[in-house]
């Protein structure tokens, strides 16, 4: 895109956007806070439910496009032997995501690569097509953040239809990146105005680069067999927290749930940390221990994915290190690898 289109809005832009979109009958996901204090994107119907100040949401955007559990196919056999098939697809309704962070929007790039790779995944693509992503640039990265180490930026606009700077305590500046973004601006009508000629984007927030993915990959290329994997996975419990909270992890399992006369085929999240993930019917498991599974997770993100798609499958949101029950620290492990 040549010339950048910039608009300005009041500090209260998030709330007025929610109200404008809801009034237009558009589905809106915006940041809300639960009783336990967790901030997450949720369907809202009024700006009263929305909060404006938060580091990041508890969940990334992944589940909106690749739901935890999704019905791919369902059937019901009638008494006459007739079979009814589903699910009946409803006409796709427009959806606007407000207030996700640039790292989470950037993760959609990795998911797009996978789900449009050799075959365009219909359920995924439908949801992508109907959705407008409005991200909020970060002014204060959290301690666990490391987007700048994996090619991102606190002000990165990748996969954001609109990127908003400021807001909450100061006037907002909106950078329009796509046609969907332009449509979003139209819907906000008079709550936004074109920014005056010569308006500049704020200075980028500094975030120190904590490792170099190229160097990490260099070591990974040579060290499939290394004691590193055993030593650094001793504490790993083998649960799915890191993968399930990861914006780019996208593995799934397909199960059939059938009863007497009806059934569903579902696509559910799965995770390479689980022993069952690679267990063969014969009983053989090519990844027999946590070390092998931990290696898989790192190798996939920092070696295999870059080889196949030209970039690492990590956006540096830091959810894995923040939420790990035993303090497994991806960042520390990558820094360790880099120093070898």
């Amino acid at each position: 895109m040549g010339e950048q289109k910039l608009y300005q809005a009041s500090a209260n832009w998030l709330k007025s956007a929610v109200d404008a979109l809801c009034a237009a009958g558009i589905e809106v996901l915006a940041p809300t806070q639960s009783e336990s204090g967790k901030v997450d994107l949720a369907r809202v119907t009024s700006s009263e439910q929305v909060i404006q100040s938060y580091p990041n949401t508890a969940f990334p955007l992944k589940r909106l496009f690749l739901p935890m559990s999704e019905v791919l196919l369902e059937y019901e056999k009638g008494e006459e032997g007739d079979v009814e098939l589903g699910p009946k697809s409803a006409p796709a309704k427009e959806l606007v995501i407000l207030g996700c962070r640039p790292c989470d929007a950037a993760a959609l790039e990795m998911l797009d690569k996978v789900f449009q790779w050799d075959y365009s995944d219909v359920p995924y693509q439908e949801k992508r097509d109907r959705t407008t992503v409005v991200s909020l640039a970060c002014s204060e990265p959290s301690p666990e953040c490391f987007c700048t180490s994996v090619g991102g930026s606190p002000q990165g606009s990748e996969q954001s239809d609109v990127l908003v700077f400021g807001g909450a305590n100061s006037a907002a500046l909106m950078q329009i990146n796509t046609a969907k973004g332009e449509k979003f601006i139209e819907r906000l009508a008079d709550t936004v105005t074109p920014a005056p000629e010569g308006t500049k984007l704020p200075e980028p927030t500094e975030l120190e680069q904590k490792f170099d993915p190229q160097k990490v990959k260099g070591w990974l290329d040579e060290n499939f067999e290394s004691n590193f994997w055993v030593e650094n996975s001793l504490g790993c419990l083998g649960c799915g927290t890191c993968s399930y909270l990861c914006p780019t992890c996208h593995c799934f399992d397909i199960v059939d749930e059938a009863s007497w006369n009806r059934g569903q085929r579902r696509r559910n999240w799965d995770c390479c940390s689980f022993a069952l993930f690679t267990l063969h019917a014969s009983g053989h498991n090519p990844r027999p221990d946590q070390a092998a599974r931990y290696r898989q997770r790192l190798m996939h993100k920092f070696k295999v994915f870059p080889e196949r798609f030209g970039r690492v499958a990590c956006v540096g949101c830091g959810r894995c290190l923040k939420n790990c029950a035993v303090g497994q620290n991806l960042l520390a492990d990558l820094a360790d690898i880099e120093s070898r």
Binding site: M68, L237, C239, G240, Y244, W269, C271, F274
Partner: peptide
């Protein structure tokens, strides 16, 4: 519940 099985693994 997201079935991460952290409860089981820990």
């Amino acid at each position: 519940c997201i079935r991460c099985y952290a409860c089981r693994q820990v």
